[in-house]
Simulated scan of single mutants.
Amino acid sequence: MTWFKREDNEIVNDPEKTVRTEGLWVRCPSCKQIVFKADIEANQQVCPKCGYHFRIDARSRIENLLEPGYQLVDLELRSTDPLKFTDLKPYSKRLLEAQRKTGLNDAIVNAIGHIGPAPFAPIPVVLSVMEYAFIGGSMGAVVGETIARAVDRSLATGHPLIIIAASGGARMMEGIVSLMQLAKISAGLGRLDDAGIPYISVMTDPTTGGVTASFAMLGDLNIAEPGALIGFAGPRVIEQTIRQKLPEGFQRSEFLLEHGFLDAIVPRKELKLYLAQALTWMSNKTEPTETSTNPGNQ
Rank of each mutant, 00 (worst) to 15 (best):
residue 2 T to A: 14
residue 5 K to D: 14
residue 6 R to I: 15
residue 9 N to C: 02
residue 10 E to D: 11
residue 11 I to M: 07
residue 14 D to N: 15
residue 15 P to Q: 11
residue 19 V to D: 04
residue 22 E to Q: 05
residue 30 S to T: 07
residue 31 C to Q: 05
residue 32 K to Y: 14
residue 32 K to P: 05
residue 35 V to Q: 04
residue 37 K to I: 04
residue 42 A to S: 15
residue 53 H to W: 06
residue 55 R to D: 12
residue 57 D to S: 13
residue 59 R to A: 10
residue 61 R to C: 06
residue 61 R to P: 00
residue 64 N to H: 15
residue 69 G to F: 12
residue 71 Q to R: 14
residue 73 V to Q: 07
residue 78 R to M: 02
residue 79 S to F: 04
residue 85 F to N: 00
residue 85 F to W: 00
residue 85 F to D: 00
residue 87 D to T: 09
residue 92 S to I: 02
residue 92 S to F: 04
residue 100 R to I: 05
residue 101 K to L: 09
residue 106 D to L: 03
residue 107 A to F: 11
residue 109 V to L: 15
residue 111 A to D: 08
residue 118 A to G: 06
residue 119 P to I: 04
residue 120 F to W: 14
residue 121 A to N: 10
residue 123 I to G: 03
residue 131 E to W: 10
residue 132 Y to K: 12
residue 134 F to Y: 15
residue 143 V to I: 13
residue 143 V to W: 10
residue 144 G to E: 07
residue 148 A to D: 14
residue 158 G to N: 02
residue 164 I to V: 15
residue 165 A to F: 09
residue 168 G to N: 13
residue 169 G to H: 01
residue 172 M to L: 05
residue 173 M to K: 04
residue 175 G to P: 09
residue 176 I to S: 13
residue 186 S to C: 00
residue 186 S to L: 00
residue 195 A to E: 13
residue 200 I to Y: 00
residue 203 M to G: 05
residue 205 D to I: 02
residue 209 G to M: 08
residue 210 G to M: 07
residue 211 V to G: 08
residue 211 V to K: 09
residue 212 T to Q: 08
residue 214 S to Y: 09
residue 216 A to V: 07
residue 222 N to R: 12
residue 225 E to H: 11
residue 227 G to T: 05
residue 228 A to K: 01
residue 232 F to G: 05
residue 237 V to N: 03
residue 242 I to Q: 02
residue 243 R to E: 05
residue 245 K to A: 12
residue 245 K to Q: 01
residue 251 Q to Y: 09
residue 251 Q to C: 10
residue 252 R to A: 02
residue 257 L to Y: 13
residue 261 F to L: 08
residue 262 L to Y: 01
residue 263 D to I: 04
residue 263 D to Y: 05
residue 265 I to F: 10
residue 270 E to W: 00
residue 271 L to C: 08
residue 275 L to D: 09
residue 277 Q to P: 00
residue 289 T to E: 10
residue 294 N to E: 07
residue 295 P to Q: 08
residue 295 P to G: 07
residue 296 G to F: 14
residue 297 N to H: 12
residue 298 Q to L: 13
